[in-house]
Nucleic acid binder design. Structure first.
Lengths: 70, 70
DNA sequence: TTGTGACTGATAGTCCGTG
DNA sequence: GCACGGACTATCAGTCACA
């Protein structure tokens, strides 16, 4: 399992758990909507600071976004 | 504590725990020594795939590189 | 043994749109 | 509600000489 896909799946899972659409989520935290899409699909390779912004937006420690999927 | 500095300190700590100088570590894993230096100092903002390479080199899960420092 | 500034090609990240 | 594309600018990847 690729690290980018794992990251994307974790972000998608946590975002949906909060009942937020991609666009609403993106607007709310100043991230581009198409970029959120690309990251959730594992098609993008974001920098650490961007991953940190996702962690802040989702209110979880950054390490949790890299957690293994059972 | 900035996420980049935390990342850098974790990498440095784990590298030294393995008794490796930056240069030896860098050579061994095909990373430039000065690039290792920049990341350990928190002066660089690497992408996820680069962080994954460090995790592989140090033989730890990527999440561990983002662990909080006590 | 490591820190640092400067550099070039590659890609991160934004903004516009479509089905 | 989301995937995907094109075009664009800012920043990163990777390397070097030097201290």
């Amino acid at each position: 399992m690729d690290v980018l896909q794992r990251l994307g799946q974790n972000i998608r899972r946590l975002r949906r758990a909060r009942g937020l659409a991609q666009e609403k989520f993106a607007l709310q935290f100043g991230i581009d909507r198409t970029y959120v899409s690309g990251i959730e699909r594992g098609a993008r390779n974001p920098t650490v600071t961007v991953v940190q912004r996702f962690a802040d937006a989702l209110d979880v420690p950054i390490a949790e976004l890299f957690a293994e999927i059972e």
